[in-house]
Design a protein around this nucleic acid. Structure first.
Lengths: 123, 123
DNA sequence: ACTATTGTATTAAGTGCTTAATACAATAGT
DNA sequence: ACTATTGTATTAAGCACTTAATACAATAGT
């Protein structure tokens, strides 16, 4: 796994994001065993407690689960993963729309704007 | 002005956002004189220093300017306002796209998703 | 020239949050 | 049964940041 931690925001938040992205985007596969807390921490260059915190919080989404001494695993329930992916997308989109409205864009304008930018990116 | 401050995030940030939104969305008009720091603070129910901080930071965007004792004014330069509005939109959109990509959405998916949600909102 | 009103500077207290050191607990594997 | 390895709990230090009290500075208006 390719870790990418900066000091702009709390480390544990970035860990959560990156692990979750790894699962939801398919980098980790359902049922995979994760390396141990200490290994992951070493790999990412963070304190084990910090990694532990990230993983513990992730568990609340049921994306991963723990067997006390045999380690942590990605859920095998593809439904959960898909559901969370949709949910995440929804939250991101709603937040995005709210922000755009706050600076005075109507719904039509938003669609137009983003279409334009996405087109530009394709070039 | 209708202030809406919660304790989730720093007060001064929320003030910046709301004032900026007020300008960019057309609630405040170019050239308008703003109430004094102390008045605004009282109105919003915050400490004057906090309002001062928000206004001072806003000045860096050139949306408002100060005449030491006669008060603060919204810029009369409509260009600046429009430019900032576009810039803000761009930042919001780019950030949005990045987030969506991080959870595994391609550009096409993004457009599809948001189109769908916007359509739902219209109903 | 005076004074009220405006913006500004300084600084200290409070606060919440992150991180890290360390110790504890459970169990798979031998 | 032992031991190495796993996850977990506790707690304290550090840190950065926000907020607020207070004092200072400039000038428009009289």
């Amino acid at each position: 796994m390719q870790w990418n931690i900066d000091s702009e925001r709390p480390v544990y938040i970035q860990l959560i994001e990156q692990i979750q992205a790894g699962i939801v985007s398919g980098y980790f596969n359902p049922g995979d065993k994760l390396p141990s807390v200490r290994e992951l921490a070493a790999e990412a260059g963070v304190n084990p407690n910090t990694m532990q915190r990230a993983l513990a919080e992730l568990e609340q989404t049921e994306l991963v689960y723990t067997n006390r001494t045999s380690g942590r695993f990605i859920t095998s329930d593809i439904g959960i993963i898909k559901k969370l992916k949709k949910q995440s997308a929804n939250n991101i989109i709603v937040e995005f729309i709210e922000k755009m409205k706050q600076i005075g864009y109507q719904e039509d304008d938003i669609l137009e704007c983003i279409t334009k930018i996405l087109e530009e990116m394709r070039k």
